[in-house]
Every structure is written in C-alpha cells, then in structure tokens.
Computed example of a mutant assay.
Amino acid sequence: MDKQSTKKYVLKSLVSLFFHLEDVNPKVSESSWGTLFTAAALLGWTEIQPLIQRKETWKICECLLMRNRRRADDFLIESLVYIENPQDPIREAAVRFIGLAARQIEDQNEEKLDKLCSILNDLLLDQKPSVSTLASQTLLILKVTWNQPAAGCTLGTLFTACLTFCRGV
C-alpha cells in the first residue's frame, strides 16, 4: 500500500486501539500501547509519542480529537460499540470518550444530542457504579454545554449552567 492509504487505514484503527489500552488482558493492553506508539510515529504525531510513553490516556484522547476534529463524528460513531463491551474499564473509557468527542462535533444539533442522551441513559442502569455515575455526569455536561463554544465555557459558566439545570429537574 502507498503511504497515504496506510495513513487512512491507521486513522480508522485509532479508536479501537485507544479502547484496548484499557483491556483487562495485560497482553492486549501492552500490545495496544506499542501499536499506538507505532501508529503515532507513522502519522508523524511526535507530540503524542511522549504521552504514550507516559501512558497519559486522556491527554492522548484529547490530542487525537483535536488533531482530527473533522473526524469527531466518525470517532463518536466508532466508539458506540464499546459501551456494550463486557469489560468495565472499556465501557468507562467509551463513556469518557463520547463526552470528549461530542464536544468536538461541528454539526451539533438537537437530534444528535437526543441520540447521545438516549444511549447514555441506558448506561445509567449499568451494573458497574463507576460506569453509571460517569454516564450521569456526561449526560449533564452534554446537556449543559451542547452548542456552546468550548472557549466560552469556563468553570464558572459551567457551574452556573449546572445549577440552573439541576434546579429545573
């Protein structure tokens, strides 16, 4: 394959690799870390490589989403499969990823928000309390910040919006 085709293939595998960093099988997890490092090198993402070496999962996720804002919708769709994963850490990672990716979507409309909320609502009954709590927090944040410019969302405005939302419930 030529280099451009290889890069497209690697980009399509990033979400899967990212979730398997959290795999409970240490061999799968370690293999995913190594493969992600190699993928970053192939893509020329030198700033992500030190994060991979330090295993800073959520900084890697933020970098991935910032570098590929146009693909945030695709990443979000790819991540939905992982909320049904039998492994608790992977479901937790999926919920976190959904929350981060949703903020990067360029076409934020009510229909998308409703679909995401419906999916996250199903996770409120997850057997693992950390997954259900995270789903609840992500729901709240999405409802409050959807269609708000990321730069305009300070901790103070988020807190005020959360208070307003909670009072309305």
Rank of each mutant, 00 (worst) to 15 (best):
154 T>I: 04
87 Q>W: 04
81 V>P: 02
103 R>K: 14
81 V>F: 12
7 K>W: 06
16 S>Y: 09
76 L>K: 06
32 S>C: 03
6 T>V: 15
55 K>M: 10
163 L>Q: 12
109 N>E: 13
95 V>G: 05
54 R>K: 15
16 S>E: 15
134 L>N: 13
137 Q>E: 12
104 Q>T: 07
168 G>C: 15
164 T>P: 00
33 W>M: 10
61 C>H: 14
31 S>G: 14
98 I>V: 11
74 D>K: 14
13 S>D: 00
44 G>D: 04
117 C>L: 12
37 F>P: 05
158 L>R: 02
111 E>P: 01
143 K>V: 04
43 L>K: 04
154 T>P: 00
62 E>Y: 13
38 T>C: 11
70 R>A: 07
110 E>P: 03
27 K>R: 13
48 I>P: 05
98 I>D: 00
2 D>T: 01
149 P>Y: 06
65 L>S: 04
9 Y>N: 01
66 M>K: 11
109 N>D: 14
142 L>R: 09
83 I>C: 14
131 V>K: 01
125 L>F: 10
34 G>T: 06
95 V>Y: 15
36 L>R: 09
71 R>M: 12
159 F>P: 00
45 W>L: 15
24 V>K: 13
68 N>M: 05
103 R>Q: 15
79 S>T: 07
136 S>N: 02
160 T>V: 04
101 A>T: 05
141 I>Y: 01
128 K>G: 07
132 S>G: 05
79 S>L: 07
117 C>E: 09
66 M>Q: 11
27 K>H: 14
121 N>F: 09
15 V>H: 04
155 L>N: 12
135 A>V: 06
56 E>V: 07
120 L>E: 04
29 S>A: 14
89 P>R: 06
128 K>P: 02
126 D>V: 01
